[in-house]
Design a protein around this nucleic acid. Structure first.
Lengths: 126, 126
DNA sequence: AAAACCGTATCAGTTATATGATACGGTTAC
DNA sequence: GTAACCGTATCATATAACTGATACGGTTTT
């Protein structure tokens, strides 16, 4: 079963989008793998304290992206092949990093300045 | 007059929030300074192709944060002292960077791996 | 077979975001 | 002074996002 242990609701972006991002990041990290069992809509909504319809929207969109599969009545499963994983990984890493770089540039930081800042905030390497 | 030359509307976050972020990043970068003249609501909305009410919402929130001042009938001006600038700067840099770091961690990257990725995507130092 | 889940669907209601139009009165520039 | 611009306010409207409740039928487990 996929863990949502470290999932924290942020503000600013829609909840359903945050759920989708969490799944994709897990796939990128390798903590979510092909054929993994998804928590049911009811269970996840109770876990996150949100409405079941919000979770259903996230799952529906994940299904449209062919990342999960659902059968009426049964549980939903992750269905990703290695090509999809690689695609998701490169897209997420690049877009998240580009967003950060753009912000740093807008605030006048040089490449080295931004990297030093990130290094400092990250803290001890892990 | 504050420049919105490189401002591009993104999707995902509200337009008024993007405007606020643009101003704050400009202040952090030093390209927007105390007593700078803000573009009028009408001008900026025309420039961005959005509704004047959307710009007004951004300006109202900036005013509540004491970052700009408006007098009915007259133009609006940036009103930030050096303490505010430093506060805005540290808040923005830290939150943007923490967001990126959290994403990298969720995707299983080590500190060094993430820094190398950022270095590569940034390209030539500037 | 029955109970316990599950995916799916639908209804209504609220809030946030954005658009569009218009108006009033204050300020600035000519 | 007057025209042009400005901040501010108020309508109405539309859509997206989220909540809450409920229901139907399929699957799994016992």
């Amino acid at each position: 079963m996929i863990s949502f242990e470290h999932f924290i609701l942020e503000d600013g972006s829609p909840i359903y989008a945050q759920i989708i991002r969490h799944i994709k990041r897990g796939i990128t990290a390798g903590t979510i793998k092909n054929q993994d069992e998804m928590p049911s809509r009811r269970v996840l909504s109770a876990l996150l304290g949100v409405n079941p319809n919000t979770v259903q929207k996230a799952y529906r969109l994940l299904e449209e992206e062919k990342i999960i599969e659902s059968r009426s009545g049964a549980k939903s499963y992750v269905t990703v092949n290695s090509d999809q994983v690689e695609k998701i990984r490169s897209q997420l890493l690049e877009s998240d990093t580009r967003t950060w770089i753009e912000a740093m540039k807008q605030m006048g930081l040089s490449r080295e300045g931004a990297l030093r800042l990130a290094e400092k905030i990250w803290g001890t390497p892990d």
